[in-house]
Write a protein that binds this DNA or RNA. Sequence first.
RNA 1: GCGAAAGUGGCGGAACUGGCAGACGCGCUAGACUUAGGAUCUAGUGGCUCACGCCGUGGGGGUUCGAGUCCCCCCUUUCGCACCA
Length: 811
Amino acid sequence: MSAENYRPGQIEPKWREYWASNRLHEAKDNDPRAKYYCLDMFPYPSGSGLHVGHWRSYVLPDCWSRYKRLQGFNVLHPMGWDAFGSPAENDAIQKGIHPAVGTKRNIENFKRQLQEIGAMYDWSREINTTDPDYYKWTQWIFVMMFNAGLAYKTFMPVNWCPSCKTGIANEDVVNGRCERCGTEVTKKELNQWMLRITKYADRLLSGLEKLDWPEKVKTMQTNWIGRSEGAEVTFTSIAADGTEHPLKIFTTRPDTLFGATYMVMAPEHPLVKELTSPDRAAAVDAYIEQVKNERDVDRAAKTEKTGVFTGAFAINPVNNEKIPIWIADYVLMAYGTGAIMAVPAHDERDYEFAKTFGLEIREVISSPKGVAEEPFIGEGTMINSGPFTAMPSAEGRTAIVRRLEEKGLGRGTVNYKLRDWVFSRQRYWGEPIPIIHCSINCGLVPVPEEDLPVRLPDVERYQPTGTGESPLASIHDWVNTRCPNCGGPAKRETDTMPQWAGSSWYFLRYASPHADDVLITEKGKEWLPVDLYVGGVEHAILHLLYARFYTMFLHDIRVVDFDEPFLRLFNQGMITYVGKSGKSEKMSKSKGNVVNPDDLVREFGCDSLRMYELFVGPPELDAEWNDHGIDGVYRFLKRAWHWVWVHNGKWPTSPTKEILQLRHRLIKDVTERLEGLRMNTIVSSFMEFLNHVTSRNEAPDKETVEAFLIVIAPFAPHFAEELWQQTGHQPSIFFEKWPCWNEAYTAAETVTIAVQINGKLRATILVPADAPEETVVETARKDPSVARYLEGKQIRKTIYVKNRILNFIVG
RNA sequence: GCGAAAGUGGCGGAACUGGCAGACGCGCUAGACUUAGGAUCUAGUGGCUCACGCCGUGGGGGUUCGAGUCCCCCCUUUCGCACCA
């Protein structure tokens, strides 16, 4: 083999073998270096394998991890498998392949592909959420939550996916459809396990402040939690027959209580039946039926207000006024109390509704324009508000709440959009919920720690029953057991956990993956929290919210000593592809537009693909795949290889000023741009460096070659290792230190100054760097193309920006 | 409807706190070397113009000696949220 030709196919497997057999990527506990934990969102090992879009998400964090290692950090960069979930289960149903078998096969393929990335994953810490040694702890956390009162079982209308045949969480419903399969979600009354995530609502909100996360993600989480301060106020409803019921409402604007001219209940409100008068019953029933039918379907597009009068009235506690009670679908049962006081003068929705049905609009906050044309939402001076008149609205708000509290008719309160987490799934391929139902008198009993894990038994049929019971319910000798408490007959819980369960804490397990007596060891805790977490923005709410919740809980029970798991978050953009449609679309197997990385690795090598994945565009944005783009990077690596080889061993003892400058600029550019994760521009820097250094036709010194190889190593690790060895160094290059630059050397001796006349570029001149203004002006005036414009004109003003620009203003 | 991000050559994209717009790469054109070229090398490549030059960062205004960058208005695309009281 002629070493002068770049043959990635020959060198790459060799170095991967070297790294593996020398355990170079294993993160060691008890290391004097500072730790750095760089985490990729672990994949679901699907049957279709990796495409170049997935690759992109793994290359950036690996590049970063290798950089951190070269900077002297003890880096933990692990990988594992989020392997519970419906695709494997669906394969089981359709093809009769046991999910464990299919999952194992997929993992093997995924692992092979991931290894071709050449990443420094520590495979000795590989985890798999379906491994009983792993899910023992997933179950253990559930038991701890149960003991802490955070896990409870309740009957409630849950989101039901008719295709997955399982209940799902609010977070799993996207635009009224199942997040996993896209089927429209319906409601079903089911006895479900719930997690009291709402108890952590405030902490989940305030914790965001200190995180170095994209603002977009923080905003999404903030909106999801949806905290509103306001008041709960009790009105008294009076049905047509005279019976009275308290009717609670939530409002963020108690200062507008005097402007309430009617009330609205959600159609599902439990009091609807009792409050509907006989003469209104037909209309009310019809309306409820109508709303039921159009639920979730067209509601998004619906703008006009609909509703119906119940025939009942309510007494406003602040002024004892009698106002009508309506039913309308713009009030949601799931938010607040499911009923509102309507203040049309100061709320857009109430305003529209009042206009539609001719209800009174009473101004109670002085509006500059009046409320005849539009509602006034802002703050102002209170009017028509009894004793509170003339108060500023913000002040009146607290005053009214205080008055209500004194009278026991209301209280200041906080409302959240966040709901408790529906944690039950009526599916097979998940962690069994480790609870036993004692038939005698112990009720719900958690499986004792020594009996964990509760292993997932084999079943004959994976098909969900659709009745709200999981397939596990059919295995009688598994279901029937003894109560751990009293020893009496008992039944196991047959629901399983959602896929999120295993992924809500996996980052902890990497720290001590083999510990069998604790979730995480004391040594292991030193790795945490995660310093950089990289993954797609599609997990901005679900996964990240759940993982933060789990971490906060584990903090509270002293399993870990921090309460935010991910200090810095980076969202990678997707790879899109212009397919047959002519439009840019997401790469997916179903669209038939996937580009397989295996073929590209075979043809151009892993290093070329790594660099192209980074070069393709700004990492935080989606990028369009270009089939020829990789050619340029491949050419660059070939040229760079050649350049190192041609001069190998013939290095001059000291570099020329120009080479020195190019070297220091390269180090500076790469380092600074790495810190900002601007990988796409770093690849450009390498190319520019090579273009300059080869066009100079002079041999580089040894130190320049070394610096070049070290800074390129995070990007093209095999390439760098091979040349490092070929140039007479001991492997591995990753034992080296990241080079420094000297600012003084990065500066050029001469600079090009742009000369403008009245702001228009007329010439460029070459002057010594940092030349005094007079010299530059003098040189510029002598330049013929400048002189031409100055002739016969008077220079009124001269603007000089050092080493950059000179602008003559002439009259 | 609300919120966020984006809009720069044929294409992907550069441009640090306002200072030579188009770096780097793809593609394309011409040439060299070749039996050959989807290899390699050299030169060129924003538009208009023979040229001096003029015009150019979604559109329109503005600030400034100077604007892709700052301010105001509008358009388009993408992504969130969507009656949250």
